[in-house]
Each structure stands twice: as C-alpha cells, then as structure tokens.
Amino acid sequence: MELSKEQIDDILVITLKTEILDASNAKEFRSQTVQLLENSRKVVFDMTQVKFIDSSGCGTLLSCLRQLNGYGGDLKLSGVQKPVRTLFELVRMHRIIEIYDKNDDAVCSFQ
C-alpha cells in the first residue's frame, strides 16, 4: 500500500493512498506503519482517499493508536469519509480517536 508522509514540526502526517482499508490490505498497512510510528509521538492519518473500511481496518487503526499510546503519543484522523465514519460510529471508534475534517485542524489540535 502506498503511504506518503510529511513532517510538520514534531507532527507526522501520513496520507493513506488507498480507497480501501479492509482485511485484504490491513496487515500490509500495519507492517508499514509499525516502523513509521516508532519514532513519532504525534501522528495524523489523512483518510481522505479511503472510501471503504471494515473491522480489520478499524482494528489496525486501533493497533496504531495502542502503539503510539505506549510511547505516550496520540493518533488523530482527518478527512474521514461518510461510509467510513458510519462504521466508526457503529463501533464507537469516534469516541476513542479524535477526528478532524482537515489535516490542518488535526495538526493544530496537537500544537
């Protein structure tokens, strides 16, 4: 899976360049992010391009949050599309991970 990253001060913004985050690519996504997150405390996932997510996708995001939380860091999401948000609300992910409309808002929330 293609991921792009941008460092804004001490905040790492990772853009998911995929329309799908499901059981077919969740493992791959996780193995790519494990290393990326290792040296970060403040991370934003830009989800603008993701149009579909399933429970495996949600699980992998929770796993990233746990990893960051283990170092005292935090994960925030931006650009969450409506179908993705629907599932987040169903499993109450939106109460655990802060969600912002835009990257800038998510970045500002860390500063």
Binding site: R66, L90, V91
Partner: peptide
Amino acid sequence: PLKDISKMAIKDLPEGGMGCYIIAQS
C-alpha cells in the same frame, strides 16, 4: 459479545472480534 470500546483503556483495545457485531448491526 463486543464490549464498548469507548469505555476501555487504550492498552486493552481489541484489534479484532468486531466482525459479528458489525454484521448483526448492519
């Protein structure tokens, strides 16, 4: 049964086990 993850400590968050709940709710 799926526990309400919003009430869990972050270190206890599950990575799986949500599928059946999601199917039943959808």
